[in-house]
Write a protein that binds this DNA or RNA. Structure first.
Lengths: 149, 149
DNA sequence: AATAAAAAAGATCGTTTTATCTTTTTTGTG
DNA sequence: CACAAAAAAGATAAAACGATCTTTTTTATT
């Protein structure tokens, strides 16, 4: 579905959304430990997210990564686009270039409604809204523990 | 979503479902041309499908690949399991090992209903049923033309 | 100013995925 | 039987992905 890189990135942003703000910055080391992700790889991803304005950072002692107000208005979809590219949920499930609503591939009717709805939800829901929901519903689970593949 | 290999495999099986039977066998060369897929790679995939009883074949002159009655009772899901493995639609969207209906991750409620539905449709619908539907609905489009990624 | 903490940048390495090429085996046909 | 057509099998190569390591830059603190 998503690449490992993208999963790490989303989890890191959610972690930052919950635990950081302008005055509480968090270093890669801490984030990687909390999420149980490979540290140098996560560092690279955070740089990519930072240079795309999805995450903020400051250097030097006491520095680290955090989400500012703007960052929190971004969506999961923005993260997916940044790491995996825009194509992820837009292309035909079988990879057929000619496939469309008018010209559907054999699995189009099965897959298409699903893709559209998920795409919308991921595009419309901001990170802050998402975290708010999680907190209201009390469904905050550990972002730790990862299955490769 | 799916690997290229898996997309090739599904397309090849659909192609065979439409164009082949016990008396009309088709060689890799022809299939690869029709689907515009890399020929040796597709050959390897067909071998994998054949050894897993999802496709039939005969060697020698006049030989080739085809679907017999049993093969047509298999599902898209069987193909996905054969090529990409069973985990594809079963794991948490964010890769979290602790995620479940009782213990949902932040995107679980968005993603889970669709995963379940797609999984069921892919598991329950046989290849022959699928092709039948396509023909009734008249939505037979070219399986040619592929977007990498 | 010196030091140390932290991110930024970039070079490198290994694995998996994708793809190709060559050889062997099977089998129908003249 | 000899030949050719086709799949089966396996070795190899290239690209993408996942991950690590080293060096540089920035900056707060002493």
């Amino acid at each position: 579905m998503l690449s490992n890189a993208c999963k790490y990135a989303i989890r890191a942003i959610l972690y930052l959304a919950i635990h950081s703000d302008e005055t509480t910055k968090i270093g890669v080391k801490k984030i990687a430990e909390e999420l149980e992700t490979p540290q140098p790889f996560l560092a690279k991803l955070l740089r990519q997210l930072t240079s795309n304005k999805l995450v903020s950072s400051t250097k030097g002692p006491g520095g680290g990564f955090f989400l500012d107000k703007n960052n929190k208005e971004k969506s999961i979809w923005d993260v997916i686009c940044c790491i995996d590219g825009t194509h992820k949920f837009e292309k035909c499930f079988l990879g057929l270039s000619k496939c469309s609503d008018k010209n559907p591939c054999p699995v189009h009717s099965t897959v298409s409604p699903f893709k559209k709805k998920i795409l919308n939800e991921f595009r419309d829901k901001t990170i802050s809204k998402l975290v708010e929901e999680i907190e209201v519903e009390g469904t905050v689970i550990s972002l730790k523990g990862f299955d490769l593949k």
